[in-house]
């Protein structure tokens, strides 16, 4: 393995690194928003929309991101929906992540103790007030660990973007190997780059989980 080769490839990888971060960021934010909407539809048992959300969840969770991306990038233009590779990648991540986030958030809302709900009702709170002041603050806190796990999962899923030629980290590594046959060096830098993103993030999320829990429940 040559250090010179590694050094020379750093600028290319740096670009891919930031792109991976950017795509992950938009994808995760979008997934959390979609997940909140889907889980609230389920929590409030909104007719029709709740069923749509259930169908979406099943489709999204039971198909691979690879296939989802093919659909968005190659099939959607056939029905007039055209977008750039980057937009398709982010859309795919949101489509996939939304259902995982919805499950995580809904799980948290379901995890709020029944007695908390009953004591909220007992002081005359309406269904909406109960959600706003009791169930959501506690339930969202309970769902933080699952959301955090999904964040890590979704960042790793960006590696699939390589199939629609987005120059993120994995795509760049494969590109470098294809161009220069520097397989060892490229894979080494790839692993380091993911580690730089994921290890600190994982530590931060663990800290955040503890803080959120302490804030809401005191333990």
């Amino acid at each position: 393995m040559s250090w010179i080769v590694i050094q020379q490839s750093v600028p290319v990888f740096a670009q891919a690194f930031w792109l991976t971060l950017k795509l992950s960021f938009y994808g995760i934010i979008g997934a959390i928003i979609l997940g909140l909407i889907a889980s609230f539809l389920r929590y409030f048992k909104v007719p029709v929309l709740r069923q749509i959300s259930a169908v979406y969840t099943e489709v999204s969770r039971n198909t691979p991101l690879l296939i989802q991306l093919f659909f968005i990038y190659y099939a959607f233009p056939e029905i007039g929906i055209k977008m750039s590779a980057t937009a398709a990648g982010i859309s795919g991540l949101i489509f996939l992540g939304g259902s995982y986030m919805a499950e995580a958030i809904f799980g948290g809302l379901k995890g709020v103790a029944k007695i908390q709900v009953e004591s909220g009702l007992a002081i005359g709170l309406s269904r909406w007030q109960l959600a706003r002041y009791v169930v959501f603050p506690q339930g969202l806190t309970l769902s933080v660990p699952a959301i955090a796990a999904n964040v890590i999962f979704l960042i790793k899923e960006t590696s699939i973007f390589t199939v629609i030629a987005i120059p993120e980290l994995t795509n760049t590594a494969l590109d470098q190997i294809g161009l220069y046959y520097h397989t060892d060096e490229s894979l080494f830098v790839l692993v380091i780059a993911y580690a730089i993103i994921l290890i600190p993030l994982s530590l931060i999320l663990t800290w955040l989980e503890r803080r959120a829990r302490r804030g809401a429940f005191g333990n």
């Binding site: 103790a113 007695i115 908390q116 009953e118 004591s119 909220g120 007992a122 002041y133 009791v134 603050p137 506690q138 806190t141 804030g215 809401a216 429940f217 005191g218």
Partner: peptide
């Protein structure tokens, strides 16, 4: 109720 069920977040 039997279990002292204050809202822990408030």
């Amino acid at each position: 109720f039997q279990s002292y069920d204050l809202f822990p977040n408030l």
